[in-house]
Design a protein around this nucleic acid. Sequence first.
DNA 1: ACGTCCAACTTGACACTGTCAAGACTAGGG
DNA 2: CCCTAGTCTTGACAGTGTCAAGTTGGACGT
Lengths: 203, 203
Amino acid sequence: MAAVVFDTVKIRATVALVTDRYHHGDLRRALIGAAVEAIAESGPSALSLRAVAKRAGVSHAAPAHHFGDKAGLLTAVAAEGYDRFADALERAWEATGDFVEVGVAYVRFAIDNKAYFETMFRPELLHEDDPDLQRAEARSNAALVRGAGEQRPDAAFNAEALGAWSLVHGFAGLFLGGNFPPAVQADPEAALREIARRVRFGE
Amino acid sequence: MAAVVFDTVKIRATVALVTDRYHHGDLRRALIGAAVEAIAESGPSALSLRAVAKRAGVSHAAPAHHFGDKAGLLTAVAAEGYDRFADALERAWEATGDFVEVGVAYVRFAIDNKAYFETMFRPELLHEDDPDLQRAEARSNAALVRGAGEQRPDAAFNAEALGAWSLVHGFAGLFLGGNFPPAVQADPEAALREIARRVRFGE
DNA sequence: ACGTCCAACTTGACACTGTCAAGACTAGGG
DNA sequence: CCCTAGTCTTGACAGTGTCAAGTTGGACGT
């Protein structure tokens, strides 16, 4: 009997996540989700706090209460994005141990998670000093470096890794902007693999 | 005597460019200039038409009169940017005939003309169907292709050119976002040349 | 020389935005 | 059972883009 009661409590707590009680339950999460939806539709710079609030079914000032200001909400989105990004890169490296596959995962993430990706790389919209953001950013940087190989001890930077990073990042950005010819826009992953086949790193 | 009068007229017309008469003379130009300044300070998405108007010393609705709406002003900025961009790429190709130098010019333009560059590659802020924009965009694409070499007739796209384009575009974007290690941020051109030395295109 | 037309620009208004202060509500601990 | 602390709402304010209606003044035909 006690078990049954306990279950009921759990169910009510779960239901509270999507219900419209005064105390929402996990409004913070819901707001981030609503923000991601809105960003996916019209980009991070067009995000409206009031529209996000409406989407989540709360009052217009609720988002600011949780995130301080608009940049705070976008920062939370970016931080979550970097975390998912790091996950994706780590998965790719662990599954294949292949340099190129990490690059493919980079681009695939950008395409499949346009909203996160576009928010992550727009520093003028974020609170760059936010500790959560910095932690998540560091995670994804580490995952990236891990997939890019060793750095020679005498160099100030790893030129091969920087080149590869630039390539996949630029590819993703140009693709999302619709700047490529139709054949590439139609199947970006095939195009990227074709490029990878034709590019050699190292002198 | 007639010549003197004519000169005076010309002088008055020139002065009108910077003066505060009711009919400005070339307000369109002045507004674009003010917009570029404002964008350089805080990015294209933070642009305020009213702030641009104030900077140019005209009423708050003057920009909308000339450009239709905010996206119209940004489109004009982007079009001018693409034109200057095409100029820079053409110059680099004609001066050196070197593939790599066109890439360097690409990145150098992005860094030296942050405001233009960031506006150009933000399609959600622009009127992409604007004929002036399309013309200027086509010009810079042509200049880019010219520097990237021939395309094999059997391929749907030029993989080497796309790879090089992605690389320089990504490098520029990451640099502008401040994502690189300090040594690279301090001297991006040297870093880019180092990368170019270590990357080989073609199988 | 002069009136008339028309593009350039202004004025005023509206709905919408982010942000802030003050208040209403409620879950959880004493 | 109340009281507190955190969650969310309400109401207000200045600033924004956009539109309609007004003013201004240069150019052009007569």
